[in-house]
Simulated scan of single mutants.
Amino acid sequence: MKYMLLVCGDDTADASGMAPVEPWVEELGVERGVRLHGHRLRLPAEAVTVRVRDGEVLRTDGPFAETKEYVAGFDILDCASMEEAIEAAAKHPVATIGAMEVRAFWDDEDAEGRIRHLDAELTEAVRERDLDRAMACYAPDVEVFHPVSGLEQTGADALRKAQEQWFSALAGPADREVLDFRLRVDESVAFSHALVRLRAPLADGTTLDSVTRVTTGYRAAGDRWLIVHQHMSVPSDAGLPPAGRTGS
């Protein structure tokens, strides 16, 4: 379960004796893997408050409300329970002079399920050699590195040309089997590491049978996820098609 930790400072408090934040970040982020990310915010005096009334945009320099307490930063935590999140918040140095507001994310989406469905869709597209269906899995600004050509394709147009070359090297359906799939999802980005076995008859009369390690980066695009980065590596003796032909 993910939690937003709002770090609320107090401009009347004496922070001279406050412990440094870096050890907390090291323990929660590096050692325990509870803190996903976070950042400090500029002071309220530098804020801009925006309202729209009767179609007119009203801008006010400064915070939404005058108060001695203000949000000085935030952290995203991934904890098993609210109690664990509270324990993490209590260890934050600012808790000794200010306040920590812990709020659970509104968890009404199955991001992991959607990404796994996207990978399954890519598998079906490769099996049927359906170029349009395969390209629908990628973002327009995708960057893909193919081990066969040793080149990086930047953008959907370049990737489409590479995929066309790849499909033209096949003499029949390609079997894409995901042997291992590990996924880490954040709010708008995700990464997966997988072992993928590709088997297919080739146009030159030989047969492709190789295991590829695939690292994939995803980005949330509205209510769906798209692939924005993909890096594939294979053993040097994998028996892939000739250089210049690329795979998915």
Rank of each mutant, 00 (worst) to 15 (best):
Gly9Ala: 12
Arg184Met: 11
Arg224Glu: 15
Arg184Tyr: 05
Gly38Gln: 04
Cys8His: 11
Thr246Ile: 05
Arg127Val: 07
Glu121Met: 13
Leu159Met: 06
Gly113Asp: 10
Thr49Ala: 03
Val30Tyr: 13
Pro242Ile: 04
Ala174Thr: 11
Thr60Tyr: 09
Ala243Gly: 13
Val21Pro: 00
Gln165Ala: 14
Leu198Tyr: 02
Pro63Gly: 05
Asp119Ala: 12
Pro241Lys: 03
Glu83Met: 05
Glu84Cys: 08
Arg176Phe: 06
Leu198Ser: 04
Ala200Asn: 09
Asp61Ala: 12
Thr96Ala: 15
Val214Thr: 01
Gly222Ser: 06
Ala221Arg: 12
Val57Ser: 05
Pro173Ser: 12
Phe74Met: 10
Phe145His: 11
Asp107Gly: 08
Phe145Asn: 01
Asp237Tyr: 11
Tyr3Gly: 13
Arg35Phe: 11
Ala156Lys: 15
Val52Ala: 02
Ala136Gln: 05
Ala95Val: 00
Leu208Gly: 09
Gly222Ile: 02
His146Glu: 14
Ala85Leu: 04
Tyr70Met: 06
Ala99Tyr: 04
Gly172Asn: 07
Leu122Glu: 11
Asp11Pro: 01
Glu83Arg: 14
Ser236Lys: 14
Asp75Pro: 03
Ala156Arg: 15
Ser236Thr: 13
Ala45Gly: 15
Cys8Phe: 02
Ala158Phe: 09
Arg42Asn: 08
Asp209Arg: 08
Pro20Gln: 10
Ala19Asp: 11
Gln153Glu: 15
Pro147Thr: 00
Leu198Trp: 00
Ile86Gly: 00
Arg133Gln: 13
Gly9Glu: 07
Gly9Lys: 02
Gly244Ser: 09
Val144Cys: 03
Pro235Ile: 06
Asp108Lys: 10
Leu41Met: 13
Val214Asn: 02
Ala162Gly: 15
Arg32Asp: 07
Pro235Phe: 01
His92Lys: 10
Val234Arg: 02
Arg51Trp: 02
Ala13Trp: 07
Glu187Asn: 13
Thr246Met: 12
Met18Glu: 15
Ala13His: 08
Lys2Pro: 02
Val126Thr: 08
Gly17Asn: 14
Glu69Asp: 05
Ala203Glu: 12
Asp204Ser: 07
Arg103Lys: 14
Glu84Ile: 07
Arg103Tyr: 00
Glu101Arg: 09
Leu198Val: 03
Pro241Gly: 08
Val196Ser: 00
Gln153Asn: 13
Ser188His: 15
Asp180Arg: 13
Thr123His: 02
Leu198Arg: 03
Tyr3Phe: 14
Pro20Lys: 12
Gly217Glu: 01
